[in-house]
Write a protein that binds this DNA or RNA. Structure first.
Lengths: 105, 105
DNA sequence: CTGGATCCAATTTGATACTG
DNA sequence: CAGTATCAAATTGGATCCAG
């Protein structure tokens, strides 16, 4: 296989393969959400873990973060165009998982 | 988000998100290969790691393993229909990575 | 409300040695 | 040649505590 092909796949893996990243992106697809709202929609994710994954997604520029200058803090996360471009892939992942359920224990 | 959607995605993540799994599957797509041939095509992967990932892929039934009864041993790995069904996803991953290169350092 | 700083446990990957 | 067994290293997710 060409090295480039491998790197392309690695790039994608890096971006979507956090345990929750795909799920976060899907949540953000329709609306911007603030931190607490995301938390509410994905209750199983730990507070701190969510912070980390959001940060990574932001670093990879899949989402953007807007901090309202208010007290108490209000921060909104929204998907970027770049992030949006990965949506077909997420959909395909969902479809495949749907038809090919493996033992997810 | 529906719990089911989440589980579908998790299923897919579980299957393709090993560091090398997608790459192994692509290599096997065209031909069955024996262990040493896979190793040759993906030199960066460590012997031991390859064994493990192949074993997991086999457990998830994405590939099958045929052991020829000869000395020295000869083992062939081939992709299953089930494994084949994930190919569009891999292609999409490759495409996305191609157009959206992130710092893979 | 949001998130930084730490530490820890679990998982994953890689290294080394040995076997039929 | 292919694989097992074991261990070490690295990465990741999660828990707890603290702060503006």
């Amino acid at each position: 296989m060409k090295v480039e092909t491998m790197n392309n796949i690695k790039t994608t893996l890096k971006v979507v393969c956090g345990k929750w990243k795909g799920i976060i992106l899907i949540e953000l697809f329709d609306d911007s959400l603030r931190f607490s709202e995301i938390k509410k929609r994905i209750p199983e994710i730990h507070h701190q873990t969510l912070i980390k994954q959001l940060k990574e997604l932001e670093e990879d520029q899949l989402i953007s973060r807007y901090e309202h200058a208010v007290v108490p803090p209000k921060v909104e996360y929204s998907i970027t165009e770049y992030g949006r471009s990965i949506f077909p892939l997420l959909k395909e992942m969902e479809q495949w998982g749907k038809h090919h359920r493996v033992n997810v224990e």
